[in-house]
């Protein structure tokens, strides 16, 4: 999968107009200099040779060096990836906290007014563009009410250079016990993760509801109810636990949606993550970085489905690979 995506992206970005040399040099550059620069970057070689060289590099776990900033692509990515990870984890958290309880409640009260209301909320929130919801949150909670910072990962007066180690700012600030910075980091996470999480929660409401319906109709739940065990723990403990496996599987499938959402959220909230890196470097036609970002995104998707498979196997002993 990785290989095919890489091939598509590799070819597409090279046959389209614009190249990193034009992005780099001013209009003053004479043709000779441009040619020399192209030669230096290996852009004058036939496409197939460039491709072979690149694959060779990737096979050696080297994503190459940025053509514009001469920075290792891996280092550019390791700079930005933690920001995206932090955002997606918190986004996912919001999704689960909103989606699962609402879905379970809707299933429990099937075909009631609340059920329809929750399902309607699920559909509507799914149709709201994540970047627009972000703008609205910025306007309402950031500008009008001034409760939360509107963008960025830290306030200008909280200097990342004083704590940065892993790039996951929550961990970094905890490591040096800087509570003030931690608070600042958390406050900056509120609006972006709420935006991302809410939009994705629509899908989770639906998934949870559908799976819960199946579970609630199963014999053991009916039996438990018949035995007079209280309704709440039956539904929300045993029911949810049993619906959890399919929900988890679906969660694995939503990773690509989560990533897409993260890219847009990053753009709205000036979040210095992978999505912003990709957009900026596309404009600069920085081929190695664009390819590197795509590779990492593909790896994340593959990795997440692997994790889900493993958890699935752990939870459900019938599944063996």
């Amino acid at each position: 999968m990785l290989f095919i995506l890489l091939t598509i992206v590799f070819v597409v970005i090279r046959i389209m107009p614009g190249d990193p040399v034009s992005a780099m040099l001013g209009g003053h550059a004479p043709d000779k200099v441009i040619e020399a620069k192209k030669a230096e970057l290996g852009l004058n070689k036939p496409l197939i040779v460039q491709y072979g060289n690149y694959l060779w590099q990737v096979a050696h776990l080297d994503l190459g060096t940025s053509m514009i900033f001469k920075q290792k692509v891996t280092s550019a990515i390791s700079d930005k990836l933690p920001a995206t990870i932090e955002l997606t984890i918190f986004g996912m958290l919001v999704t689960l906290l909103v989606g699962v309880p609402l879905g379970a409640y809707a299933a429990d009260n099937r075909r009631s007014g609340q059920d329809y209301l929750i399902r309607l909320f699920g559909i509507v929130i799914y149709c709201i563009p994540v970047y627009w919801l972000g703008l609205m949150f910025q306007m309402i909670f950031g500008v009008w009410l001034d409760w939360f910072p509107v963008a960025g990962r830290t306030s200008p007066r909280v200097f990342a250079s004083t704590f940065e180690q892993t790039g996951l700012y929550i961990i970094d600030t905890l490591l040096i016990n800087d509570w003030k910075a931690l608070w600042d980091v958390l406050m900056h996470l509120v609006l972006p993760s709420l935006t991302l999480g809410l939009v994705l929660s629509g899908i989770f409401i639906r998934l949870t509801r559908a799976n819960m319906l199946d579970v609630l109709r199963s014999d053991y739940i009916l039996a438990a109810e018949a035995r007079g065990i209280r309704h709440f723990p039956v539904v929300y403990k045993h029911g949810l636990l049993n619906a959890f496996v399919p929900i988890l599987t679906m969660m694995g499938l939503q990773v690509s949606l989560l990533m897409a959402g993260a890219v847009l959220t990053e753009s709205t909230f000036s979040w210095p993550g992978m999505g912003r890196l990709l957009l900026e470097r596309i404009y600069l036609r920085d081929y190695p970085t664009i390819q590197g970002v795509i590779v990492i995104f593909a790896l994340i998707v593959a990795f997440m489905s692997l994790i889900v498979d493993i958890i699935y196997a752990l939870i459900d002993p019938r599944v063996r690979y």
Binding site: G18, D19, S22, G26, L284
Partner: peptide
């Protein structure tokens, strides 16, 4: 319109 990299190539 074109983004900057293409723009420069265009004027060249």
């Amino acid at each position: 319109s074109a983004e900057w990299a293409t723009y420069k190539e265009n004027w060249r």
